[in-house]
Amino acid sequence: METKSFVMEILEKNLINNIEYLKEKYEKSILPVIKANAYGHGIEIIAKALYRNGYKEFSVARLKEATKILENKDLNGCKILVFESIDQKDFSYIKDCDSIILTANSFQELVAMIDNGISSGKIQLKIDFGFGRNGIDILEISKLKSYIIKKNLKFNGIYSHLYATDFKEGKELLNEFNKIVLFLGKDRFQMIHMQNSVGILLYRTQKLMTHMRSGIFIYGLQEEGFFHEGLKQVFQLKGKVAGIRDLEKSKYLAYSLKSDLNNINYKNIVKIKIGYGDGFLKCNENTFCTINKKSYKILHVTMDNTFIVGDESIRDGDEVILYPDITLVRKNTGMHICEILPLINERIERVLKSQGTEN
């Protein structure tokens, strides 16, 4: 690792705390969502941490994400639900892989899976209520029931997605989903789930559901209005001060004219080794980081380096934390934290911290 480079620390204790908190509060099993590189936290690290703490069922968006997890041979016996549709050329691989659970995103996909010898016990049905992404059309539910009865099918699960955050509309969707499950026969499904993280908070325990499907909450990613006091931030983006410069008499800061940066004090400009080449975007300019637990303004982001307005107390090698308070990310950058973190790329190493916790 380069001197004073940045890492993303993953706090295992906080991850498990969040799942246990949700599980105990709502008295439902949690199906962790670890798609998009575990929302930027590192899919392999998160899968490993979940597995060794007894959580062996998780979900991803794409088959490629599932196969990446399964490269770790120590995760034998895990079950991975893949949300998106799978090309039929991969069916032979799926049939031989006990860990992967497919989603039938249309009636035609379900028929193709069954006709190609994939057991219904390796399939979850997704119902589409007009979200516009994936799912079996609700107009085909009667046809679906007839097919299920004819083939005597029992599935790994059934689910849908809450696209509405309007409380009344979301409640109506949940009621419609419950009716469909009962119509098809709830005993035909091992797993029944619809609530994502916001749905967990808004609608709490739903009797028919066996699981709650949580992405952002298991990582402690929260915003005002959708806040759980019991959740803890799982990541820390940490590095070291990699130099301090007095640029009072300089015309430039990196490639930019100081006059364009609209700052007054250039006496203690702090450099750190992260930039938009690492996925730390320029929208972070004029936001704040912490150095030695004190807040400082981020002035300028370049491809490989970021510059901070410091003071006389900062020393070379002091610890720097970026995104110290995730609840402020949208306010400060205009972007959701789910957009910010997955962009932090492989140049920033993810490191699992198994001992201790951070608040």
Score class of each variant (00 low, 15 high):
residue 4 K to H: 13
residue 4 K to A: 09
residue 4 K to C: 02
residue 5 S to E: 14
residue 7 V to L: 11
residue 8 M to Q: 14
residue 11 L to W: 15
residue 12 E to D: 10
residue 19 I to E: 09
residue 20 E to N: 15
residue 20 E to K: 14
residue 20 E to L: 12
residue 23 K to W: 01
residue 23 K to M: 05
residue 27 E to L: 10
residue 29 S to Y: 11
residue 29 S to P: 05
residue 29 S to I: 01
residue 33 V to T: 06
residue 35 K to R: 09
residue 35 K to P: 01
residue 35 K to D: 00
residue 42 G to D: 08
residue 49 A to M: 12
residue 50 L to G: 02
residue 53 N to F: 01
residue 53 N to G: 00
residue 57 E to K: 14
residue 58 F to D: 01
residue 59 S to V: 00
residue 59 S to G: 10
residue 71 E to T: 11
residue 74 D to E: 15
residue 77 G to M: 06
residue 78 C to D: 07
residue 80 I to N: 12
residue 81 L to H: 12
residue 83 F to R: 04
residue 84 E to W: 08
residue 86 I to Y: 02
residue 89 K to Q: 11
residue 90 D to A: 03
residue 93 Y to V: 01
residue 96 D to P: 00
residue 96 D to E: 15
residue 96 D to W: 02
residue 100 I to P: 10
residue 100 I to G: 07
residue 108 Q to G: 08
residue 110 L to N: 08
residue 112 A to W: 03
residue 117 G to L: 07
residue 117 G to H: 08
residue 119 S to E: 13
residue 119 S to L: 06
residue 121 G to K: 15
residue 121 G to V: 05
residue 132 G to L: 07
residue 134 N to W: 08
residue 135 G to I: 08
residue 140 E to W: 02
residue 142 S to C: 00
residue 145 K to S: 06
residue 146 S to K: 13
residue 148 I to W: 01
residue 151 K to G: 05
residue 161 H to V: 07
residue 162 L to T: 04
residue 162 L to W: 04
residue 165 T to Q: 13
residue 170 G to A: 06
residue 171 K to L: 13
residue 181 V to E: 04
residue 182 L to H: 09
residue 185 G to R: 04
residue 194 M to I: 15
residue 195 Q to V: 02
residue 196 N to R: 07
residue 196 N to S: 14
residue 200 I to G: 10
residue 200 I to N: 14
residue 202 L to R: 10
residue 203 Y to I: 05
residue 204 R to A: 10
residue 207 K to W: 00
residue 207 K to P: 01
residue 208 L to E: 05
residue 210 T to N: 06
residue 216 I to A: 15
residue 216 I to H: 12
residue 216 I to R: 15
residue 217 F to T: 00
residue 219 Y to K: 03
residue 220 G to W: 09
residue 221 L to D: 06
residue 223 E to Q: 13
residue 223 E to A: 07
residue 223 E to L: 07
residue 224 E to F: 04
residue 229 E to M: 03
residue 230 G to K: 08
residue 233 Q to C: 04
residue 235 F to L: 13
residue 236 Q to M: 06
residue 241 V to Q: 05
residue 242 A to G: 11
residue 245 R to Y: 12
residue 247 L to H: 04
residue 248 E to C: 08
residue 248 E to Y: 05
residue 249 K to Q: 12
residue 252 Y to G: 02
residue 254 A to D: 15
residue 256 S to K: 13
residue 256 S to N: 13
residue 257 L to N: 13
residue 257 L to I: 01
residue 262 N to W: 03
residue 264 I to W: 04
residue 271 K to N: 10
residue 272 I to N: 09
residue 273 K to E: 12
residue 276 Y to R: 06
residue 277 G to H: 06
residue 280 F to E: 11
residue 285 E to V: 01
residue 285 E to N: 00
residue 287 T to S: 14
residue 287 T to D: 06
residue 290 T to D: 12
residue 292 N to L: 04
residue 293 K to Q: 14
residue 296 Y to I: 05
residue 299 L to G: 07
residue 300 H to Y: 15
residue 304 D to Q: 11
residue 308 I to M: 09
residue 309 V to C: 12
residue 311 D to G: 00
residue 321 I to C: 01
residue 322 L to P: 00
residue 323 Y to K: 07
residue 326 I to A: 09
residue 329 V to W: 03
residue 331 K to E: 15
residue 332 N to H: 12
residue 338 C to Q: 12
residue 340 I to Q: 10
residue 342 P to I: 04
residue 343 L to G: 03
residue 346 E to N: 14
residue 347 R to Q: 12
residue 347 R to C: 02
residue 347 R to P: 04
residue 347 R to A: 08
residue 348 I to N: 09
residue 356 G to M: 07
